[in-house]
């Protein structure tokens, strides 16, 4: 900070200083190279490739494509096809419904647990924190396998218990299976979101609590007037990540498909894209679908950020 490397004072232009400046100019790029190369290959490259693919089509020459293939510009045809597929559109609406219910529930649960664990009167906060965070370490696939065992009649002690009590739950039915997936996602990520919120709670200076306590504020007022406004950035962050995660849902429904006939191959947008690519062998439509998923995620995230920032400036 004190010494500007690119404009050194004249008297310092010793040969040694000059080589140093050269090295200082080169160094950041040397250090950035490995990251940027892989970032280009695995992020920028695929994104550009997907966009190009989504605007082209492969034409097979001859009856069975025996005379080779040509790639043509297809305009918006792939997008028209993707958006004309009612199952794909239905999968997006399904995820919106899922997100509108599951994300607020999960974040609310994470906030409540975080605030309770950070309040003074809790016993064994470290132990509880660890237990709540544990599911984050269970891969989504394994979590889904475990919960699927807890959903399947005949195997599940929960179904047995509820049946014995007179309820006959069907966790894998057409209307219920979406919420069974929501349960798996909530189980997996609540503790993770809770830790992000705890990190922000810990950053609140002690004096603020003190002042509020002197003012005679109870736990509820402290929560709504002090903690909630101050942890808003963390809540915003977790909501945005959850929105993106919801639209990407793949592993959980894919695993539950093996035990529930209510989940088809286009149940979520990502499953639809996967099916286009590997079942229908139509990588161009799959690419268009992937672009649409990313765009939807971006639009929703930015809308949410806009809404929350708007509120802030109103104050």
């Amino acid at each position: 900070m004190t010494i500007k490397s690119d404009t050194p004072p004249v008297q310092e232009l010793s040969p040694r200083r000059i080589t140093h400046n050269k090295a200082e100019k080169r160094a950041p790029w040397l250090l950035l190279t490995p990251f940027l190369v892989i970032f280009l290959i695995t992020f920028i490259g695929p994104i550009v490739y997907a966009i190009v693919q989504s605007f082209t089509r492969v034409q097979r020459l001859g009856l069975f494509g025996e005379n080779g293939r040509t790639v043509q510009f297809a305009g918006l045809d792939n997008y028209v096809q993707a958006l004309g597929n009612s199952a794909f559109i239905a999968s997006i609406w399904r995820m919106l419904l899922f997100g509108v219910v599951q994300v607020p529930l999960m974040i609310a649960l994470a906030v409540v647990l975080a605030v309770i664990l950070e309040s003074a009167s809790v016993r064994w906060p470290g132990l509880f924190r660890t237990m709540f965070f544990l599911p984050y370490g269970v891969p989504g696939v394994i979590a889904s396998i475990l919960w699927s065992f807890l959903y399947v009649p005949g195997l599940s002690p929960i179904v047995d218990l509820l049946t014995a009590l007179g309820f006959a739950p069907d966790f894998l039915g057409e209307t219920t299976v979406l919420w069974s997936i929501a349960n798996i996602v909530t189980w997996s990520y609540t503790g993770y979101n809770m830790l992000i919120i705890i990190a922000q709670l810990k950053a609140i200076p002690t004096e603020i609590y003190e002042a509020s306590r002197i003012d005679g504020a109870g736990a509820f007022r402290t929560f709504f007037n002090i903690q909630l406004p101050l942890i808003r950035p963390a809540i915003t962050l977790t909501v945005v990540f959850s929105i993106i995660g919801t639209l990407q849902l793949f592993a959980e429904p894919q695993v539950l498909r093996k035990v529930s006939s209510s989940i088809d191959t286009q149940y979520t947008p990502n499953m639809a894209s996967y099916t286009s690519a590997f079942t229908n062998n139509d990588f161009n439509v799959a690419a268009a679908q992937a672009v649409l998923i990313a765009l939807t995620a971006a639009v929703l995230s930015f809308t949410f950020l806009r809404l929350t920032n708007g509120k802030e400036s109103d104050r």
């Binding site: 990251f35 990588f283 799959a286």
Partner: peptide
Amino acid sequence: VFGTVLAGVLIPATATAIPLYLL
């Protein structure tokens, strides 16, 4: 550079999986 990488945080990882396979 920083802005581009930051945008990468928000790109759904699954959106890149199929094009990655093709590449």
